[in-house]
Design a protein around this nucleic acid. Structure first.
Lengths: 187, 187
DNA sequence: ACCTGAACACCGTTCAAGT
DNA sequence: ACCTGAACACCGTTCAAGT
């Protein structure tokens, strides 16, 4: 119960940013969630930019860990690949939130440099994992695994975005099914 | 040269919203672009919600007209389909902007009801056009043309989002190529 | 009809001050 | 070490007033 404030701030800020983005994250509401005053956040993070960068960094670190777990839990690369869309489904299940990095990709123009960097790392981590698994699964030739990985990442992000705009998680599932039927993802 | 202020506001607001979203659209900067004061905007639009709804409505109306032109200009449905990604490429070419409705899909939680409605109509217009053209092109069976239309719309939006986050229009082009190679779009 | 200045409660941020 | 209140220039919005 003696969780420290820094950790509470990070957790609350992540949830807010997934629903409202960088621009929609405000210190007074965040502070209220945590149970402190807005000015106190500056004791832990020197600016909104630093807080957001820390949030985005933690975000891709967790994503990387989740993908490693997925690989470890899966019997073979094809089944790991089949389960990849689950990692993006999770956000929609939780109050129709979306991928932090997807939201921030839209807000690109308003993002401080340090935040942009972490957002791009999230994409890199996903593309690297997909590329590795696609190669191992022999779904495409090794040479084409990276372009295909990027295509899958972009398409899954687009599916999440569209499903969110309808607050309809079943739309996400049918989009993923269509990607499979079309051949973008292994059936 | 005697263009009216209402029209100028609509035009300037569209450009701002494509770069910064609904949350990032502010009346003082917008008014400065137009050459009036922030309070004057209220003479034309009763609120930010109304302005944004008008912007989003105009946006899908223009998109619908552009798609009709595309159909009319194309010799056959397959070539119309091949040129569909161009409609989303345009925004990136113009100062790395993105589709207004894609941005607002992310901002879903913060959108007034009237704006949500117009954003969804944009998606509907695109899916209806794609569905019609896919059927005519016999790319998929008539029954599967609508799910496929949705998949294409979501994937192209995702490609735009990812390319924007790198400010790299060539990434958009390679993503579209990968979609074609994978079979999502006709080669 | 079209526009403005001044005011309101709200934002990120700073800072001196409290324990 | 951890937190606060008060202040700053900024937001959307209102309104009485100007031409």
């Amino acid at each position: 119960m003696t969780e420290n404030s820094r950790e509470k701030i990070l957790l609350a800020a992540t949830k807010i940013a997934q629903a409202h983005g960088y621009n929609g994250l405000n210190f007074r509401d965040l502070a209220e969630d945590v149970g402190i005053k807005a000015a106190s956040i500056y004791y832990y993070f020197p600016s909104k930019a630093d807080l957001a960068a820390a949030v985005a960094k933690r975000y891709w670190e967790n994503a990387a860990a989740a993908l490693e777990t997925l690989s470890a839990e899966s019997a073979d690369p094809v089944s790991a690949l089949r389960r990849y869309p689950e990692t993006f489904r999770w956000a929609l299940e939780n109050e129709n939130r979306m991928c932090l990095s997807g939201f921030m990709a839209a807000e690109y123009d308003d993002l401080p440099e340090a935040v942009k960097k972490e957002v791009q790392t999230f994409a890199d981590v996903n593309v690297a994992w997909l590329s590795k698994v696609l190669s191992a699964a022999k779904v495409v030739s090794p040479k084409k695994s990276e372009p295909r990985a990027r295509a899958i990442f972009a398409a899954v992000g687009g599916a999440q975005l569209m499903a969110r705009s309808r607050s309809d998680i079943t739309l996400y599932d049918t989009l993923i099914s269509s990607y499979r039927a079309a051949g973008l993802l292994p059936a």
